[in-house]
Amino acid sequence: MSTIRSVAVAEPSGKLQVVESEAVAPAHGQVRIAVEACGVCHTDSHFVDNHLPGLAFPVTPGHEIAGRIAEVGPGVQRWAVGDRVAVGWFGGHCTYCDPCRRGDFVHCERAQVPGLAYPGGYAESVTVPANALARIPDELTAVEAAPLACAGVTTFAALRRSQARPGDLVAVLGLGGLGHLGVQFAASMGFDTAVIARGEEKASLARELGARHYIDSTRQDVAAELTALGGASAVLATAANADAMAVAVDGLKANGELLVVGIDAAPMRLSPLQLITNSRTVHGHPSGDAMDVEDTLAFAAQQGVRAWVEEAPLAEAAAAYDRMMRNEARFRMVLTTGA
């Protein structure tokens, strides 16, 4: 096999360094992808800082992968060399655990997350299970597709599975890497879209992304403002702030849903009365399986939804990662290999 460049972290909280290794030939049911682009996600810090069970160092992060199939392993059907594909947080399923037997692949008990189950996408080549693949439409470049495989599908799938219907008020809490995509998806789905964020200076950005309403949480009562608009059928909580999520619950109408996709380890402080009186629900959403990613890519291609990204070559992965973790990027860093 050929030698490839990848980015590895030798020890917890260590520095990201470019290393050379042999490309991994695909085994039965696998394909090898020539990586063209890989998004840098905030969740990558959980890999770098050893916050996930089962990590074995050195670690190569990266779960927003886009490229072309370079090699097909035995037993793989429907995929061929040259196919454009993406792989997200959902990096494969076992097919035989109880959730898989029920078709609930995203909750596979042996879920294969890139960077954890196998080396991730900060590399020129990655070998993955074929059941992790999503087809990239011709309208999307690899750089455009990569962030949609994680950040995109997380927001798209949560909105699509909500009880909200076109014309309903849907609010997006937070205007970062997840939120800026959530606003675009919500507006494209026909929702009366509101954004809840900190600071009046973000109002113009919210409207540029497709929102009709803006609520500045630093000076306005979020629940009161949502109620004045008729109450939200859903609040897509992308901000990693449990307190801000809890505040939005009282702005839900009857049968409204808080859709939780932002990660915060702090408890969410809610009273049962807030939920019972108006039959409200709090619903956590993981990213989505391979077909969810493929549907996300197709919808984004049709509707013009795009992540706002800054590109950096693979050799500058350490600087790109630091820029992302310091929240200096707007809104996604994407590593490119030049392939």
Rank of each mutant, 00 (worst) to 15 (best):
I4C: 08
V7S: 03
A8K: 13
E11P: 02
E11F: 14
S13V: 06
G14A: 10
G14H: 10
E22T: 13
V24C: 02
P26F: 07
A27Y: 07
I33C: 04
A34L: 04
C38V: 10
H42W: 15
D49N: 13
N50L: 01
H51A: 10
A56G: 12
T60P: 07
T60D: 10
I65Y: 06
I65E: 02
G67H: 06
R68H: 13
R68L: 12
R68Q: 13
G73M: 06
G75K: 04
V76K: 07
D83Y: 02
R84E: 11
V87A: 14
W89V: 08
W89K: 04
G91W: 00
G91E: 05
D104R: 07
F105E: 01
F105C: 01
E109T: 00
Q112M: 11
V113C: 01
P114G: 06
G115L: 10
L116T: 03
A117D: 10
A123V: 11
V126E: 01
V128S: 12
V128E: 06
A130T: 07
A132D: 06
R135N: 03
D138I: 04
A142V: 02
V143E: 09
E144T: 00
P147G: 05
L148F: 13
A149F: 05
A151E: 07
A151C: 00
V153I: 11
V153A: 09
L159N: 12
R160G: 00
S162G: 05
Q163F: 10
P166F: 06
D168Q: 08
L169E: 05
V172K: 01
V172E: 01
L175G: 12
G177S: 06
G177H: 05
H180R: 00
H180C: 11
F185G: 04
F185N: 12
A187E: 00
S188T: 04
G190K: 09
G190T: 08
F191Y: 01
D192C: 01
V195A: 13
A197L: 00
G199S: 01
G199D: 09
K202L: 15
A203T: 05
A203R: 06
L205E: 15
L209V: 04
R212W: 04
V222S: 03
A224W: 06
E225N: 11
A228N: 15
S233P: 11
A234S: 05
A237S: 12
A237N: 11
M245Y: 07
A248D: 05
L258I: 13
V261M: 04
I263A: 10
A265M: 13
R269E: 10
S271F: 03
S271D: 10
L273F: 08
L275E: 07
I276A: 02
S279G: 09
V282M: 13
H283P: 00
G284P: 15
S287A: 14
S287N: 00
D289C: 02
D292Q: 09
D292K: 03
V293G: 05
E294C: 08
E294R: 07
D295V: 08
T296W: 12
T296L: 11
T296K: 08
F299E: 00
Q303P: 01
R306A: 15
A307R: 02
E311W: 14
P313A: 12
A320Q: 00
D322V: 02
R323N: 08
M324D: 02
M324T: 15
M325I: 02
M325K: 14
R326A: 14
R332W: 00
M333V: 00
L335M: 10
T337F: 09
G338I: 13
